[in-house]
């Protein structure tokens, strides 16, 4: 019997075989990672009260500079990857149903509001031209706190929407799960807490045991979410092929070795060790940061690369004609 699924000679779109998406790849993985990191670093800096004492660039706290830079670079990569980059402003149009539109708005709101928030701190050549603005850039007064809350809410959407973009349509079963945006959110949060702690280390400030426990909890939560996703709907057409590639096929070493073990489980363990051993904490923080960022990037890239569509039709071995070529129905 010939295997159902002869590939159409013209193209690789409609297909009777499971088909891998090739539309989004490296650029999107970088963009997803930078957005997650950018939104998360801002949130972590504000929630952990770490905007002061860790250095500044032109008066703007280092954590905020890192956050803005990551989101600006991520946004530039996204715009550059569009088929028609000069039309990027149209991405704001469909907020009713499109998560990309939600993401575009949240990026814009975040950069605008967080930019406004830190504006009074800007210092150029010793002058502080915006110091007269009526709020505290560290959110210690009502107006500053209000700006922080709006920017923080936008940052949460920035960290999550890439996962939601993948999870919403049913086309690709591996993506079509709430586990994907949750993974992206937890990965972003873990990367960001580690990045902020690394900034503390570089600034010569002590990292608290509480931060290490938080890092362990986020990494552990990410591990649980990934494993739960791997164990659900394992026989669904399309997802079965995705799991094969991740766990047994071409991506096994990268996924199991780099994402699961080195990029998620190891940081969880190291963070717990760091919480208990103050002497080695600084080194462990840096190691955790490197592992989490690398693991987070590969988590996103491999998620994209195992985006597999089931066949458009699962053909019967008997075909739609009997052996004599006469119709079998009707």
């Amino acid at each position: 019997m010939g295997a159902p699924g002869g590939q159409n000679v013209f193209m690789d779109q409609f297909s009777l075989e499971a088909r891998t998406q090739r539309v989004w790849d490296l650029n999107h993985a970088v963009w997803f990672t930078l957005m997650g990191l950018g939104g998360g670093v801002f949130l972590a800096g504000r929630i952990l009260n770490l905007t002061e004492g860790l250095g500044a660039l032109l008066g703007v706290p280092t954590v905020d500079v890192v956050s803005f830079a990551a989101i600006a670079v991520g946004g530039a990569i996204l715009v550059g990857d569009l088929g028609r980059p000069l039309q990027f402003w149209r991405a704001f149009a469909n907020v009713r149903t499109s998560w990309i539109s939600w993401g575009a708005w949240s990026d814009l709101i975040f950069l605008t509001v967080a930019g406004l928030l830190v504006l009074p701190a800007v210092s150029i050549g010793g002058a502080e031209p915006f110091s007269g603005l009526g709020w505290d850039p560290h959110g210690r007064d009502g107006a500053g706190q209000a700006l922080e809350i709006v920017a923080g809410a936008a940052a949460v959407v920035v960290m999550t929407y890439a996962g939601a973009v993948l999870a919403r349509p049913r086309a690709i079963p591996y993506w079509n799960s709430p586990a994907v945006p949750v993974q992206f959110l937890l990965s972003s949060a873990a990367m960001s807490v580690a990045a902020v702690a690394t900034i503390e280390v570089l600034a010569g400030e002590p990292v608290s045991a509480g931060q290490m426990v938080l890092l362990a909890v986020l990494s552990g939560g990410l591990l649980v979410t990934i494993v739960a996703h791997l164990l659900s709907r394992t026989d669904a057409p399309g997802k079965r092929e995705s799991l094969d590639r991740l766990l047994r096929g071409c991506y096994r070493r990268l996924f199991v070795g780099l994402v699961l073990v080195a990029g998620t489980a190891a940081p969880a363990v190291l963070a717990l060790v760091g919480a208990a051993a103050a002497g080695s904490r600084d080194a462990l923080v840096v190691v955790c940061c490197v592992l989490l960022v690398a693991g987070g990037f590969w988590l996103r890239l491999l998620t994209l690369r195992v985006g597999i569509y089931p066949p458009v039709h699962i053909a019967s071995p008997a075909g739609n004609r009997d052996a004599a070529g006469t119709p079998t129905s009707g």
């Binding site: 019997m1 295997a3 013209f10 053909a315």
Partner: peptide
């Protein structure tokens, strides 16, 4: 870009094999 191709697959075994078609 082909908006309306016809996919094909084989079914059955020789000598009763046949080609099947699926316009999409």
């Amino acid at each position: 870009a082909w908006y309306a191709p016809v996919l094909e697959w084989e079914s059955g075994e020789f000598p009763d094999a046949t080609l099947n078609y699926l316009p999409v």
